[in-house]
């Protein structure tokens, strides 16, 4: 795999790539099931967008501690697909630097092959989450300057 990904995220992507068909969905469901309860001190960043009708409302916060980012997501239980995406991002990107996050290719997730079992439309959630995360990483860099 030639993508420039943080090590844990690279592992996750390759785990998905190695699964066939229905197994990919089972794996995504595993991530959704491990989605952690919201921490008591969770505060969605004020920039977190309130998403209009139809789309799953996703809220998130990003904290920069000693130059490393930590992301926390709030996704409703009735959206396990989006929970799975958020869990992959949380696990794959926690304790990474803003530079690492910004260097992730926008369509890194196509390597996972989920579009074959979910259809391309359903990957929009992943694209949206990655875009949010990158925006926070860029803000963190600006503040650090």
């Amino acid at each position: 795999m030639s993508l420039n990904l943080p090590p844990r995220l690279a592992e996750i992507v390759s785990d998905f790539a190695e699964c066939e068909g229905r197994e990919k969905l089972e794996l995504l469901l595993d991530y959704a099931r491990r989605f952690p309860p919201l921490p008591a001190d969770f505060n969605a960043d004020e920039q977190a967008e309130d998403v209009p009708e139809c789309m799953t409302p996703v809220r998130m916060s990003a904290k920069l501690v000693n130059g490393r980012l930590n992301f926390v997501f709030d996704v409703p239980a009735e959206s396990p697909t989006v929970r799975g995406y958020a869990m992959i991002i949380m696990e794959g990107l926690n304790n990474t630097t803003p530079e690492e996050v910004l260097s992730i290719p926008a369509e890194f997730y196509l390597q996972m092959g989920l579009q074959d079992v979910l259809t391309a439309q359903r990957l929009n959630g992943m694209a949206a989450i990655l875009a949010h995360v990158k925006r926070r990483a860029a803000e963190a860099l600006e503040k650090a300057d």
Binding site: L25, A32, A77, E78, T81, G84
Partner: peptide, 8 residues
């Protein structure tokens, strides 16, 4: 709409 919801 959610592809995994039935499985949960």
């Amino acid at each position: 709409e959610d592809a995994l919801l039935y499985d949960t």
